[in-house]
Amino acid sequence: MSVPTHLRYTVEHEWLDVQGDVATVGVTAYAADAIGELVYVDLPAVGTTIDRGQACGEVESTKSVSELYAPVDGEVVEVNEAVLAEPALVHTDPFGKGWLFRIRVAGPVQLLDAAAYEALTGGE
């Protein structure tokens, strides 16, 4: 599976697309495949301040429940209402319509690049 090179990644399989001081957050295709078909997504509320590494939501599939972890410090400025209504978007388009939330970044972004993420996942 292709890993977009313009994104940054966490070891928990979230991706981050930084545009200025706002970043879009989602889960990778690798994670979406491992999780399976999603039936429920819980996201942090707009205005919530979250710290890097903090559990800030969850995704539930027919197989399991997985926590979402904040990839950076910041304040949630938008959530993807389409994903709340149709959780399967995370699985069908993880790097596009399946994004989860946007955060105003407060602090450094210290994440994996695409090559390091591919090494972590065995190149899948």
Score class of each variant (00 low, 15 high):
71 P>V: 12
110 Q>F: 00
29 A>K: 04
123 G>Y: 12
14 E>W: 00
20 G>L: 10
30 Y>A: 13
101 F>G: 09
105 V>W: 00
71 P>H: 04
113 D>P: 01
88 A>L: 14
57 G>C: 10
22 V>P: 04
60 E>M: 08
25 V>P: 01
55 A>D: 13
64 S>G: 08
89 L>R: 05
15 W>V: 03
21 D>F: 07
40 Y>A: 11
65 V>E: 07
57 G>Q: 06
50 I>C: 14
72 V>D: 10
47 G>A: 07
17 D>I: 11
68 L>P: 04
49 T>H: 10
124 E>C: 06
107 G>T: 06
16 L>G: 03
52 R>E: 14
55 A>C: 10
91 H>P: 05
4 P>Y: 09
13 H>V: 13
83 V>Q: 12
34 A>Y: 02
80 N>G: 11
77 V>L: 07
64 S>F: 15
33 D>F: 01
32 A>M: 06
101 F>D: 10
34 A>L: 11
101 F>Y: 15
3 V>L: 10
42 D>Y: 02
22 V>G: 10
69 Y>S: 04
122 G>L: 12
43 L>E: 11
3 V>W: 05
28 T>H: 05
61 S>F: 07
24 T>P: 02
122 G>N: 08
91 H>S: 15
68 L>K: 02
14 E>Q: 10
51 D>S: 13
90 V>W: 00
68 L>Q: 06
3 V>K: 01
43 L>N: 07
67 E>V: 11
32 A>H: 01
118 E>M: 11
104 R>G: 11
9 Y>E: 08
67 E>D: 14
86 E>M: 12
118 E>T: 11
97 K>I: 13
28 T>A: 11
46 V>Y: 07
124 E>F: 07
85 A>P: 01
119 A>L: 12
58 E>R: 02
48 T>S: 14
121 T>C: 09
124 E>V: 15
56 C>K: 01
103 I>M: 06
82 A>N: 09
56 C>T: 15
102 R>Q: 15
119 A>E: 14
20 G>F: 00
55 A>W: 00
51 D>P: 00
39 V>E: 11
3 V>P: 02
4 P>N: 12
101 F>N: 06
108 P>D: 15
6 H>G: 04
36 G>N: 04
88 A>G: 13
116 A>H: 02
28 T>N: 05
88 A>H: 07
86 E>T: 13
85 A>V: 05
16 L>K: 03
119 A>K: 05
84 L>F: 04
87 P>R: 02
3 V>T: 14
70 A>E: 10
115 A>K: 03
89 L>V: 14
123 G>M: 12
35 I>A: 14
52 R>V: 15
53 G>N: 07
49 T>K: 06
26 G>P: 02
87 P>D: 15
21 D>R: 05
6 H>Q: 08
106 A>Q: 12
77 V>K: 04
5 T>P: 04
77 V>A: 10
112 L>K: 03
37 E>I: 05
73 D>T: 14
44 P>F: 02
19 Q>S: 13
17 D>K: 03
69 Y>W: 08
70 A>Y: 00
59 V>D: 10
68 L>G: 10
67 E>W: 00
66 S>Q: 09
1 M>F: 11
79 V>H: 08
47 G>T: 04
37 E>M: 06
89 L>F: 08
10 T>Y: 00
109 V>L: 06
42 D>S: 09
122 G>D: 11
120 L>R: 03
60 E>Y: 04
9 Y>K: 04
10 T>F: 01
94 P>S: 08
6 H>P: 01
88 A>V: 12
4 P>D: 14
47 G>Y: 03
57 G>F: 04
